[in-house]
């Protein structure tokens, strides 16, 4: 076992319904893993089990080759960070950040010194004596991260930490957070339902559905070779023709029907302009699949288009 975190046969039931079932999962040291999937698919349960806040019905967890069975949440080298910042309302920020050290009975001078440093690193110096209700959402999240990092966890579990922030703040926060986490060489499990966030944060991404892990790979692999139709449709990555997967990156919009190759009729359902590119969301086969394409061509919502594989178009062009 070379991996840093190793999960084996983890299952969890709630009211006789399976909420989590992971035959195996291994994560390397220093890796940031994004866990993404629709809501209610057991992502948070997985984190809670890792943190020891809940017990799995069966299975084992190893961190650094050490079994976590019977180890209390307090003694695990794991810190859990919630959706809301959950700063303690009766403590000022310095006390909040120092909380974990206080629990470890670090003396006052020492823990305040460490906390001040940590606050500086997450960019909230000067707010030491403020109370949580006096600061902004982004600052709260930074403080919460500082509070989690101060105990030097080997593993950090982030449960949708940005969901209460607005879009710009979200992006900004996740960028510095990723940099910080990489600097600290912390192994991170990061739960989100936002695909973009998952791809941006994660070295590898795990996709969940109904408590089952569908695929666990680097983002490119997910897009290019999704394990099953769920993954592909979840990512808007492409669609399946029988056993063959057709990634959306290989598709293009063409003007006329060419009978030699496969072509599909599609309808445009959304267009948006982002990152200097025109994006089209199109649906195929009576909206069985949704895929996102970039295209130079300007189309309107409701337009009917025909899709073909790029190679096929190129081939044809080559012949001409």
């Amino acid at each position: 076992m070379n991996s840093y975190i190793e999960l084996q046969n983890i299952t969890k039931h709630f009211k006789k319904q399976s909420v989590l079932n992971i035959p195996s999962l291994s994560i390397n040291k220093g890796e940031i893993v994004s866990i993404v999937g629709p809501s209610g698919t057991g992502k948070s349960t997985l984190l809670r089990i890792l943190a020891g806040l809940e017990e799995p019905d069966s299975g084992q967890i190893f961190i650094e080759n050490q079994s976590m069975a019977g180890i209390t949440p307090q003694d695990r080298p794991v810190v859990y960070m919630f959706q809301e910042s959950l700063l303690f309302p009766h403590m000022d920020l310095l006390e909040n950040v120092a909380f974990g050290l206080k629990m470890r009975r670090v003396n006052k001078t020492k823990r305040y010194e460490l906390s001040r440093n940590m606050m500086k690193r997450v960019g909230i110096e000067g707010l030491e004596s403020r109370y949580p209700h006096e600061i902004s959402g982004g600052q709260k999240q930074r403080a919460a991260l500082a509070r989690s990092l101060i105990v030097n966890p080997k593993v950090l579990l982030l449960d949708e930490p940005f969901s209460n922030l607005d879009t710009e703040l979200r992006k900004e926060t996740r960028r510095w957070m990723k940099r910080l986490l990489k600097d600290e060489k912390i192994t991170v499990l990061f739960v989100t339902h936002d695909l973009e966030e998952a791809m941006a944060m994660g070295d590898r991404v795990a996709i969940f559905r109904d408590g089952q892990m569908q695929q666990f790979a680097v983002p490119e692999d997910l897009y290019d070779s999704p394990a099953n139709p769920f993954v592909s449709s979840f990512l808007h990555a492409g669609f399946w023709m029988g056993d063959r997967f057709i990634p959306s990156s290989t598709l293009t919009i063409c003007n006329e029907v060419n009978d030699t190759f496969h072509h599909w009729k599609a309808e445009i359902v959304e267009t948006f302009f982002q990152d200097s590119k025109n994006h089209l969301v199109v649906c195929l086969n009576n909206c069985e699949h949704l895929i996102t394409l970039t295209s130079e061509k300007h189309k309107k919502v409701g337009d009917q288009v025909i899709l073909q594989e790029k190679e096929a178009v190129n081939e044809k062009g080559g012949k001409e």
């Binding site: 943190a51 020891g52 806040l53 949440p73 307090q74 003694d75 794991v78 810190v79 859990y80 960070m81 919630f82 959950l86 909380f99 974990g100 629990m103 470890r104 509070r147 989690s148 105990v151 579990l157």
Partner: peptide, 9 residues
């Protein structure tokens, strides 16, 4: 839960 996770007994 936050406090437990941060090592509080």
């Amino acid at each position: 839960e936050v406090a437990i996770s941060l090592g509080g007994h």
